[in-house]
Amino acid sequence: MRNQQWSKVKKKLDSFICDSLRNRVQFTVTNYRKAHDQLGRAFITVDKKEVLNMCTIVSSREIFWKGHEIRNAQSIEYDVCNKKENYEIGIQAHEMIKAEGIFAQYDFFDAVEEYFHLPIEKVLESDHIIIKIFSLIDRRVGKRTLQRMRESIQNEQEIIQYFYNLRCEADGIRGLCKK
Rank of each mutant, 00 (worst) to 15 (best):
I63D: 10
S75Y: 11
L124Y: 00
K83T: 13
I130Q: 01
F116Y: 07
R71W: 03
A111N: 02
K83Q: 14
V46N: 03
E50K: 03
G101T: 04
I130F: 03
S75F: 10
Y115K: 03
V80R: 05
A104M: 06
I89E: 08
N72W: 09
W65Y: 11
S60K: 12
F116W: 01
I91Y: 07
Y106V: 12
L52M: 11
D47H: 06
H68R: 14
D110T: 06
I57W: 12
H117V: 03
S60P: 01
I131L: 01
E95D: 12
E95H: 15
E69R: 09
I131V: 04
N82M: 05
E113G: 11
Y78C: 03
I120N: 08
K132I: 01
E85C: 08
D110R: 09
I133G: 00
E121I: 09
I91V: 11
E125C: 01
F109M: 15
V46Y: 04
F116T: 02
A73W: 07
E85V: 14
E114R: 10
A99K: 13
F108S: 00
V46G: 04
K98I: 10
Q74C: 15
E100Q: 15
E62D: 07
V123D: 03
F64A: 13
N82S: 02
E114H: 05
M96L: 15
C81T: 08
I97E: 03
I70D: 06
P119N: 12
D107T: 08
Y115T: 06
V46E: 02
V112G: 01
W65K: 10
F64P: 04
N72P: 02
K122T: 07
V46Q: 01
F103D: 08
F134D: 04
A111P: 04
E113T: 13
Y87E: 13
N53Q: 08
C81Q: 10
L52E: 08
H94C: 12
K66L: 10
F109L: 14
D110Y: 08
E95F: 15
L118M: 15
I120K: 06
I57M: 13
F103C: 01
K132A: 06
Q92I: 06
K66T: 15
I129M: 10
I91Q: 15
E50D: 02
N82W: 03
H94S: 11
E100W: 09
M96Y: 07
H94P: 04
E69M: 14
I120S: 05
G90K: 08
I70F: 07
I130R: 02
I57K: 15
F109I: 09
S126H: 01
G67I: 09
R61Q: 08
N86D: 14
I70G: 11
S126Y: 00
F103A: 02
N72H: 13
H117K: 11
Q92L: 15
M96E: 14
M54V: 09
S75G: 06
E100V: 02
E121N: 06
V112D: 03
E114F: 07
K83E: 13
F103S: 00
